[in-house]
Design a protein around this nucleic acid. Structure first.
Lengths: 147, 147
DNA sequence: TAAAAAATCATACTTTAGGGTGATGCATTC
DNA sequence: GAATGCATCACCCTAAAGTATGATTTTTTA
């Protein structure tokens, strides 16, 4: 049941992507064909666009796997307090903070904006009861959330 | 430094992808053009292929980031390099940094000025070959200088 | 399916960190 | 006694981090 729902969602995304492809192809056909692009250029553009599109969808789909990969590490944690429970994304950000990455670098890595990372960090600090990243790392290690 | 590496990685992936695109386009040109596919079909195939390619790369990229995050945690190597030797005061500052204190708090604690702490931190980063306090803590732990 | 939680992003602002440069005093050492 | 290393401090500037507020979208869950 749950699995089928997930599968259905993936199918939906794929279906939407395919529909999007057809639409884009049509648009390209009507707009770009009036210009004298070489076929190579034309195909290159198409390829690049859909490659980027694919990377976007791919990284989005891959996120589920990432969270699933991280969670087992955190299950070793002793503290199950709901108050201090971090979401998957927050843990991911915290991990990168612990590795010394700047917010901008984390944003680039996770393909999101700097503001999103800032929001995450703020929430992390709030949940951990700390006020900066070094304290967060220190606290997380004390709570066995890291290492 | 770290930023440039990350950027270079992305550029590399993108460059490789583009090179792959060109190769594939050529292959398509030589092989498929003898058959009489309609342009739409042709474009559709290209689009689907590169979308899938993109999804593959996208999910792979996401997964690699995580692995890169987790790996450093296991590499608790013991390094006694003289190059990374910190002075007594610098170690003291580093310890307080690891405990999440701000420069101002450390200055108050050690009864020196904020500027002095800043000078110490700059020297610490230089000696450890890092560029901020979180990286310094991470590196110091890896070098068994802390904990 | 509706509600809750998680993830995303923006804008504007303040604070802290970090880089560069230069300087002083005080030991130790060659 | 000149050189070196350490600790101290100042000023100026840029970059990064953090706060507050409000919002949308997606996902999960009851």
């Amino acid at each position: 049941m749950l699995k089928s729902i997930i599968v259905n969602k993936k199918v939906l995304v794929f279906g939407a992507a395919l529909a999007f492809i057809l639409i884009l192809v049509k648009i390209f056909e009507y707009f770009f064909f009036h210009y004298k692009f070489s076929l190579e250029t034309y195909l290159g553009i198409i390829a690049v666009i859909f490659l980027i599109l694919g990377i976007y969808f791919g990284s989005k789909l891959g996120r589920k796997n990432i969270v699933a990969n991280i969670e087992p590490q955190n299950s070793a944690s002793i503290n199950n307090n709901t108050e201090t429970d971090l979401s998957g994304r927050e843990l991911e950000v915290l991990l990168n903070i612990a590795n010394g990455l700047t917010n901008q670098e984390i944003a680039d890595k996770l393909f999101v904006s700097l503001n999103t990372i800032k929001t995450h960090t703020t929430n992390i600090y709030s949940k951990l009861g700390v006020k900066n990243r070094t304290q967060a790392v220190s606290k997380a290690k004390a709570l066995n959330l890291l290492n």
